[in-house]
Design a binder for these strands. Structure first.
Length: 637
RNA sequence: GGGGCGGUAGCUCAAUUGGUUAGAGUACCGGACUGUCGAUCCGGUGGUUGCGGGUUCGAGUCCCGUCCGCCUCGCCA
């Protein structure tokens, strides 16, 4: 075993120097077997549990990250002072011991990999006595609340489960580096202290001491550095990099997170997608011995039409059907109101009025009135006016809600949706973007309520990969009405759209919204695990994007002159992608809490409970940075 | 910024409608015990019920504010 060899070399080299005042380990706590019986060994570790039988006999389970080994202090053969010391050991004390491996005389413990043997201790050194810990690193007992776990993270991380997570994360990083190394990628570090640019997310700022009034920003991603590395002839770049976005966190989102970031020169999007598919296949094979079949591709429009979301969970049905034409001939007032918002626009235009529906097989039994009332509130939180509900009876009639008003189109509706007795239908009528989004979110909620969401992949459920392509280049910001880049401002139009984009009138809303990018996302079981695109490598096209986004040429120059200049000096066609490393680990661990896969995560307000960051700094520190705080502490009563 | 849930012994939890001295398990301390393995048995210490106000004869419980943690909408290219 590799670890064992390192350890024995280490202790051997120590012995050649001065005799250390410590029993340096010869083995770890997960290593010894019945084949080692008779050997004299030294172990180091923490007391995981203490089972004393008075002054005569003491059992200790000694723990390190490799496992547990039982120690026995047997009074018949031990000096009294050693036995006394053993008798006062407590959970989490740190020990060094020397002893002899022997078969257990009191029966094996099948729960432990070292369960056939025990160490008959002859020497004991207490390396550090612990204070009474606030909790024990125990995977069997109920976990203390997360606040406490984060405050004493070093104790929480001692838990075997957390050790396993850190090992999984390490292995993922290693497989990643292996794969991309084998494919000719070069790992390059990019700066953490970067420039403030209006790329999307709110930035963390760092004041400069040497440049009065100057500020760095922490990178939201190394996006422009990796593109410039392509201009620099790097050809294939990879980095496991930390990214920073000063936005509110979620269960699967932290302000500080890690990406598998990469970029390739002289490629079309198929090359990048193939490389990514190869990566995913390699990862799942090495991490879980799972063979990932060829990944299906789906256009953004198909995803939105069928699933109402750009990261569809294809593990279950409950697909969305557009019934606008039929709804227009019904007697439902709010259907007609929604359709009146404009049906003359193109089919997928965000402002087109539509009526959409989800058929829920067997819903009338499982979805109570209380639940469907909740759906009404639910879709309202996404901006829709409400959610209408009808049920199909055994007699083939529609009932509840707007059933009567649908009478004139009943047969068509039944045929279009394929309704059967016991089904429930959920309707939303609004403009395309709102109706689609709210039904897309509702679909996922209904799936949970109906119990049709399979187990997570790690628990034997399916791994449904999907690559979504052909995203719109731009979408309207809901509040300002301005154009926003759907992926980011450096995304190129799809090859066949490039000319249309260059020719497009920036005021031609319908055309601008219809232009499709060369972007791609990788979706796993309804979760976006990676996103990327072919980039613009032409300065003129890049300038046009900036113009569309509302940047004046002066602003574009001030913020992005380095990019525009770089593009002008022989930039190769290039594209790339970034995977959310934390989310990958979450899938391999089977957790929906991103904090579980980060050694030292932050809370909802970005606090590190262990170090108590962020903290106040002195006026002297601020002054040196040319910064004056406007914060005034609240007056104390 | 909005909505929701939570905060009681070191930890996990309980405490009837607002009513006696806020309990239990565990950890910790002391004692017993030579084959345990989440050891067992006996005894003990341990409380600003997050914090601040209010209502009440009386508040862990009701009200207001605030802090912290979690979930979520907005936000996150």
């Amino acid at each position: 075993m590799h670890v064992a060899r390192c350890l024995s070399l280490y202790s051997a080299s120590l012995r050649q120097e001065q005799e250390p005042n410590m029993l340096i380990r010869t083995h770890n706590c997960g290593q010894l077997r019945d084949s080692d019986v008779g050997a004299t060994v030294r172990l180091n570790g923490w007391v995981n549990s203490y089972r004393g039988h008075g002054t005569g006999l003491v059992f200790i389970d000694l723990r390190d990250r490799y496992g547990l080994t039982q120690l026995v202090f047997d009074g018949e053969d031990l000096p009294k002072d050693v036995l006394d010391a053993a008798d006062h050991l407590r959970n989490e004390d740190v020990l060094a011991i020397e002893g002899t491996v022997r078969l257990r005389t009191g029966g094996e413990n099948p729960k432990l990999i070292t369960g056939k043997i025990e160490i008959e201790v002859s020497k004991l050194e207490v390396l550090n006595k612990t204070a009474n810990p606030p909790f024990l690193p125990d995977d069997i007992a109920k976990l203390p609340n997360e606040e406490l776990r984060l405050t004493y993270r070093y104790i929480d991380l001692r838990r075997p489960k957390m050790q396993q997570i850190m090992q999984t994360r390490h292995k993922l990083s290693k497989v990643t580096r292996d794969y991309f190394h084998e494919n000719g990628f070069l790992e390059v570090d990019t700066p953490i202290l970067y420039k403030s640019t209006p790329e999307g997310a709110r930035e963390f700022l760092v004041p400069s001491r040497n440049v009065a009034g100057g500020w760095y920003a922490l990178p939201q991603s190394p996006q422009l550095f990796k593109q410039i590395l392509m201009v620099a002839g790097c050809d294939r770049y990879i980095q496991l990099c930390r990214c920073f976005r000063d936005e509110d966190p979620r269960a699967d989102r932290q302000a500080e997170f890690t990406q598998v970031d990469l970029e390739m020169s002289f490629v079309r999007r198929e090359h990048v997608m193939d490389m990514m598919e190869g990566y995913v296949r390699r990862l799942w094979k090495e991490m879980l011995n799972v063979d990932v079949p060829p990944v299906q591709r789906m256009t953004y429009r198909e995803a939105m039409e069928r699933f109402g979301i750009d990261r569809p969970d294809t593990r279950y049905g409950l697909e969305i059907t557009d019934i606008s034409e039929l709804a227009g001939r019904s007697d439902v007032g709010f259907f007609k109101e929604a359709l009146a918002k404009g049906t003359d626009r193109p089919k997928f235009n965000s402002r087109r009025g539509v009526v959409k529906a989800i058929r829920v097989p067997g819903g009338s039994e499982k979805l109570s009135r209380k639940i469907t009332d909740g759906y009404n509130e639910f879709v309202r939180s996404f901006g829709a006016g409400g959610c209408a509900v009808v049920k199909m009876t055994a007699a083939g009639q529609l009932e509840t809600g707007i059933a009567k008003l649908l009478e004139s189109v009943k047969d068509e509706l039944i045929k279009t949706l394929g309704l059967q007795a016991g089904d429930t239908v959920l309707f939303v009528a609004d403009v395309y973007s709102t109706a689609t989004k709210s039904l897309g979110e509702l679909r996922q909620k209904v799936a949970r309520d109906m119990g049709v969401v399979p187990k997570p992949g790690i628990e034997g459920g399916p791994w449904n990969f999907l690559i979504v392509i052909d995203f719109p280049m731009f979408e309207r910001d809901k509040e300002s009405g301005r154009w926003m880049a759907m992926h980011h401002p450096f995304t190129a139009p799809r090859d066949d759209q490039a000319q249309a984009f260059v020719d497009a009138d920036v005021n031609d809303e319908v055309t601008i919204e219809s232009i499709v990018s060369a972007g791609y996302d990788i979706v796993l079981n309804g979760q976006e695990i990676a996103g990327g695109s072919i980039r613009i490598h032409d300065g003129k096209a890049q300038s046009k994007v900036f113009q569309l986004l509302g940047l004046t040429p002066e602003q574009a120059k001030e913020k992005f002159s380095f990019l525009l200049e770089a593009l002008s000096y022989g930039a190769p066609p290039h594209g790339g992608i970034a995977f959310g490393l934390d989310r990958l680990v979450m899938n391999f661990i089977g957790t929906d809490n991103i904090r579980d896969v980060i050694a030292f995560p932050k809370t909802q307000i970005g606090a590190d409970l262990m170090t108590r960051a962020p903290s106040m700094v002195s006026d002297e520190q601020l002054k040196e940075l040319y910064v004056k705080s406007t914060f005034t502490p609240p007056a104390k009563a």
